[in-house]
């Protein structure tokens, strides 16, 4: 069972409303999925390395050359509010 405290902590971490993800039907669906996860307890993994990526790949190093990037107005065109060429958000420091 996921406790109310856990839901409140999860909501804070995922920036979702605790009332919304704390709905009874929603909690039931979460628990149903979490119950599935118990199955993996049977699998022995001692000495097994984790797979983070399926292909061997190296972080490529690129030459330090200045390239043209997106113009400011392109970057800002999807925001709800902008000011002086910046994203406008609430004042966070007085």
């Amino acid at each position: 069972m996921i406790s109310k405290k856990e839901i409140s902590e999860l909501a804070d971490l995922c920036k979702l409303s605790p009332d919304d993800i704390g709905r009874e039907d929603f909690l039931e669906s979460l628990e149903e999925v979490i119950n599935l996860f118990d199955k993996i307890k049977d699998v022995g993994v001692e000495g097994v390395e984790p797979t983070y990526q399926v292909n061997d790949y190296k972080e490529p190093l690129t030459d330090d050359i200045v390239k043209e990037s997106l113009p400011q107005e392109e970057v800002l065109k999807n925001t709800e509010e902008e000011k002086y060429g910046y994203f406008k958000i609430l004042k966070v420091v007085d």
Binding site: I2, E6, L10, A11, L13, C14, K15, L16, S17, D20, I21, F26, S29, L30, V33, I34, I89, L90
Partner: peptide, 23 residues
């Protein structure tokens, strides 16, 4: 702003997977 935008902007299946992934 974050919480309301995400709660109103995402549907239930997305919220379910985000919550599960965070868990």
């Amino acid at each position: 702003l974050y919480v309301k935008s995400r709660t109103e902007g995402f549907g239930d299946e997305v919220k379910r997977r985000i919550t599960l992934g965070t868990y």
